[in-house]
Design a protein around this nucleic acid. Structure first.
Lengths: 319, 319
DNA sequence: AGCGATGACTAGAGCGCTCTAGTAGGGACG
DNA sequence: CGTCCCTACTAGAGCGCTCTAGTCATCGCT
């Protein structure tokens, strides 16, 4: 009835419990023949090592705790590439969700109760000082959020490069009157705004920054402030771009025929056929790779940025 | 350097380790005064019980394993309400993600390695027979998917009622020519189709079922087959509805002025202002509540359905 | 005064692993 | 033939808890 233990496998294979442990940990100390015999005995009994006991017995848990927000679509992508990345370095992952009723602090605490060796926080909202305190007890890396906290690793997308990518794409399509819908005080807005401005200036063009924000309604509102001679717009993010798209549609201005438009983040909504938005995507794979390396190779604490990539869809066309 | 253990707290409070355990488990056997003193000592040392050891020492782990798909938006909602539900019954939750590279079988296996007492599978894709095998070793509940497997609890939304809700909403708005875009062989399609047909017949109206599917493109394709005298449409799901919405927009047919439209699932896309779709939502809270009860109260194995609710937005109007 | 309850607390044996410190049994080598 | 070294294996002490089976006062009651 109860699940077989290492003891049972040992008895069944006619060896000591320690040998079974050696075999299942795949460390030297057993002959190939015995190894096969033990594994066969284990398989026959349907044995699977008890993860709890394993964690407890080991001095190093090789457990990485991950907090994520169930509402953030992008976090799914990150978790997806986190698993193989951690596994390849022999680490295990344990997830802890942040929800409306379960604050980040609680999610983190539960990970610590499992004695995780290291922490990966996806887009955390904790204060820099509490993050710094966390990092004192175990390596901690913040992904996809710009924070400055001593001892905390940060891995994020290079928003500067992302914004430049969007502008240069429009430039290469022959656009010269390109406006930018600003993100206000949203994270990343400052970097994107500055990059837009610099890229325009470098091309000898006049930047035009229109107030906006991260939500659809801000995009809708910004539509009225786009000059008639503007032929292209880089929006702060996909939400903003989609709001703008909607407003343009209402007023009979066609995208991309009359106005080319880029978003940012490559959210699922941007990929929908009726939006079909050219946008800037974060490289989840690279972000997680750097995050795991930062934790396991104990590199000096730094902020690392990952280059975004441009996803060209149907909302931009040649002038 | 190393985290304090129960031993440390005991020494600091001048009691035995067993007493500390009693206090932290909050079971009878300690005086109020001692309780306070132990708790104070623990707080002073920054003590937190080691969850691994706790799980190992206990005969009942009180651990519920949950598999979810990182791609499914609705799973986030379920997880969100799962946490408080489990906690209120004294259970802990551990999550295991299903991704493109991490099959469901692996996600489940890792939960079993933690010796979870029970399993909640969100929209699993495993075969009924493998689910039945799972259920033999521990209580197992499948959420949001219709499967018939012996020993497996199923908690899902009543699609029959959902479809009826949509049709009756349109009827109450005075519509009589209501078409249904079918979901083909997608899960839930058969129930929704039948419910649509029955509700129409009961109202003395003629049902009209147009072939479709679960994706946007199927909705777009279905647009051509909607008769001119049709004033309302219930689409299989939100994706289908949005594809249809897009096609109607192109052809100059206004929603809801010329055609009322309902979706199904209440996906985030349905809530976006330019879709603004009246749709049928699943009751995540109720689903998880039933799931947890099924596991912890060991009710007889059954399929339980939860009533959906209609989310009225701007895509439907009075005839 | 004697006796069983009751309440507060402790000793110590697990839980199922890991891992250090060993032992046994061959070769290889001088 | 004795020594040295491997390799293959075992004994047993943890890891940090839980929980059963106590011990020891104290108290109410006849």
């Amino acid at each position: 009835m109860t699940r077989p233990t290492m003891e049972d496998v040992a008895a069944h294979a006619g060896v000591s419990r320690a040998l079974v442990s050696i075999v299942y940990r795949d460390v030297p100390g057993a002959s190939d023949a015995t190894r096969a015999r033990v594994l066969a005995a284990g398989a026959e009994l349907g044995y699977r090592p008890d993860h709890r006991a394993r964690l407890l017995g080991r001095q190093r848990t090789r457990l990485i705790g991950v907090t994520f927000d169930v509402r953030g679509a992008f976090h799914g992508d990150l978790i997806e590439s986190l698993y193989p990345e951690a596994e390849s370095l022999g680490y295990d992952l344990t997830l802890s969700a942040v929800t409306a009723a379960r604050p980040e602090s609680q999610a983190i605490q539960s990970l610590l109760d499992y004695r995780c060796e290291a922490l990966i926080l996806l887009g955390p909202t904790s204060t820099p000082s509490s993050l710094a305190a966390l990092a004192e007890s175990q390596p901690t890396v913040v992904v996809a959020r710009k924070v400055r906290a001593p001892g905390v690793h940060v891995v994020r997308t290079d928003d500067d490069a992302g914004a430049r990518l969007a502008v240069e794409h429009l430039l290469s399509l022959g656009h010269t009157h390109i406006a930018h819908i600003d993100g206000g005080r949203a994270p990343g807005a400052a970097e994107r705004r500055t990059a837009y401005r610099n890229t325009m200036r470098r091309a000898g063009l006049t930047p035009l920054i229109i107030p906006g924000g991260p939500t659809e309604s801000t995009g809708t509102a910004a539509a009225h402030h786009i000059p008639a001679d503007t032929t292209a717009v880089t929006a702060f993010n996909d939400g903003c771009a989609i709001g703008l798209l909607h407003a343009l549609h209402q007023s009979g201005r066609q995208v991309p025929e009359n106005l080319s438009l880029t978003g940012y983040d490559n959210t699922p909504a941007a990929a929908l056929p009726h939006a079909n938005l050219t946008t800037v995507a974060q490289d989840a794979h690279q972000l997680t790779k750097l995050a795991i390396i930062a934790l396991t190779q104990d590199v000096p604490t730094t902020e690392q940025t990952v280059s975004p990539v441009l996803i060209t869809r149907g909302s931009t066309m040649r002038r």
